[in-house]
C-alpha cells in the first residue's frame, strides 16, 4: 500500500536534509551529521524524562540543543585546544552517545525509548504520529508540519542573504575581513542542521540520516560549477531518491528509508563513473 503521508514526509525530509548537506559537504563537515545524530541521544532522554511523553516539543528542543552543543564543543576543541576536527568529533559524539545509552538503560523501562528505533527510525509509523489530533492541522501527520516548518526556516535563513552564504562557504577569512558576522551565521547554520537531524532521525534513524544529508549534495557537486546549481540539483536528486526509493520499497517490500539511501547512493556512484575526472574530496 502506498501511503501519501509517508511519501510526502520522506520527500520533505530528503529535501531539507539535502539543503543542510550541501553546506556541510562544501565545508568538509560531513561527519558532523553523524556526530549530531548520535550525540542527541542524551538530549532525547532528558527531554523525555522531563516531558514524560514521546511527542512533546520539549524532546525536540532538548535534542536539537544537544546537537548544537555538540557541534560547538567540537568547534571549540579544535579552535582553542588545537585538537584535530576528526579527533574531537570522534571524542565528543561517542562520549555523548555513551551517556545517552546509559540514560536509556537506566530509565528506558518507563521511558518507552529503545536503541533500535533510534538507530533505524520508523518511517512507516509516521502517519500514526498525530499529537495535533483534534485541531484543524490534523489532516497531515506531525512530521509533515515539522518538515514544512524546517523548509520555511531554511528559506528565511538562506534567501535574504544568499551571497553571504556563498562568500562564507568559499572563503571564511575573507568574509570575516568584510565585516560579516561569520560566527553568528555559523551557529545559525549548525542550529538548523541540528534541528533537521533531530526531526529527520525519528523517521529514518541516526545512521541513514547521514545518507540523506550528504549523498545528494556530493552527487550534485560532481555536475555543477555554481553553488546555486549545486543546491538546486541536490534538492532535485534528494526528491528523486525519495520517490524512487519509496516505489522500490513498495515493490520489493523493504523499509523505505533504506531503499531511498540506496537509490541516492546509486546516483552518486553512476555520477562518479560518468564524470571520471572527479572534483570531489569529501572529508
Amino acid at each position: 500500500m502506498i501511503s501519501a503521508a509517508v511519501l510526502i514526509t520522506s520527500l520533505l525530509i530528503a529535501i531539507n536534509a539535502s539543503i543542510g548537506g550541501t553546506f556541510l559537504v562544501l565545508r568538509r563537515m560531513g561527519m558532523l551529521t553523524d556526530a549530531i545524530a548520535h550525540a542527541i541521544l542524551p538530549g532525547l532522554v532528558i527531554g523525555y524524562l522531563l516531558a514524560e511523553s514521546r511527542s512533546s516539543p520539549l524532546i525536540t528542543l532538548f535534542a536539537a540543543a544537544t546537537g548544537l552543543l555538540v557541534t560547538l564543543l567540537i568547534y571549540w576543541l579544535n579552535k582553542y585546544l588545537n585538537v584535530w576536527v576528526e579527533a574531537s568529533t570522534g571524542m565528543v559524539y561517542t562520549s555523548f552517545f555513551a551517556l545517552g545509552i546509559l540514560g536509556v538503560t537506566l530509565f528506558g523501562e518507563n521511558a518507552d525509548l529503545d536503541t533500535d528505533c533510534i538507530l533505524y527510525g520508523e518511517l512507516l509509523w509516521i502517519p500514526f504520529r498525530r499529537p495535533l489530533s483534534g485541531t484543524f492541522l490534523d489532516f497531515a501527520p506531525w512530521a509533515v508540519w515539522q518538515q514544512l516548518m524546517l523548509l520555511g526556516l531554511w528559506a528565511i535563513l538562506l534567501l535574504p542573504s544568499w551571497p553571504i552564504w556563498k562568500s562564507i562557504s568559499f572563503d571564511i577569512d575573507f568574509a570575516r575581513t568584510q565585516g560579516l558576522n561569520v560566527e553568528r551565521k555559523n551557529v545559525q547554520l549548525l542550529a538548523l542542521v541540528s534541528l533537521s537531524t533531530v526531526w529527520s532521525f525519528e523517521a529514518v534513524g541516526a545512521i541513514l540520516v547521514m545518507g540523506f544529508m550528504l549523498l545528494p549534495a556530493a552527487t550534485a557537486w560532481l555536475w555543477v560549477k555554481r553553488l546555486e546549481h549545486m543546491l538546486a540539483l541536490s534538492i532535485a536528486l534528494a526528491a528523486l531518491s525519495a520517490i524512487g526509493g519509496y516505489v522500490l520499497a513498495w515493490w520489493i517490500n523493504l523499509d523505505p528509508s533504506t531503499t531511498m539511501v540506496l537509490v541516492s547512493g546509486t546516483f552518486f556512484l553512476l555520477s562518479l563513473l560518468w564524470q571520471r575526472k572527479s572534483t570531489l574530496r569529501v572529508g
Binding site: 562544501l26 553571504i164 562568500s167 568584510q178 560579516l180 557537486w221 555543477v224 555554481r226 570531489l280
Partner: peptide, 17 residues
C-alpha cells in the same frame, strides 16, 4: 573545487554587511 565561477568569486567582494 568550490562550485563557483570567476565572476561569482569577484562578486563576493561586493557584499557589505
Amino acid at each position: 573545487n568550490f562550485p563557483a565561477t570567476v565572476l561569482d568569486v569577484v562578486l563576493m567582494g561586493r557584499y557589505r554587511p
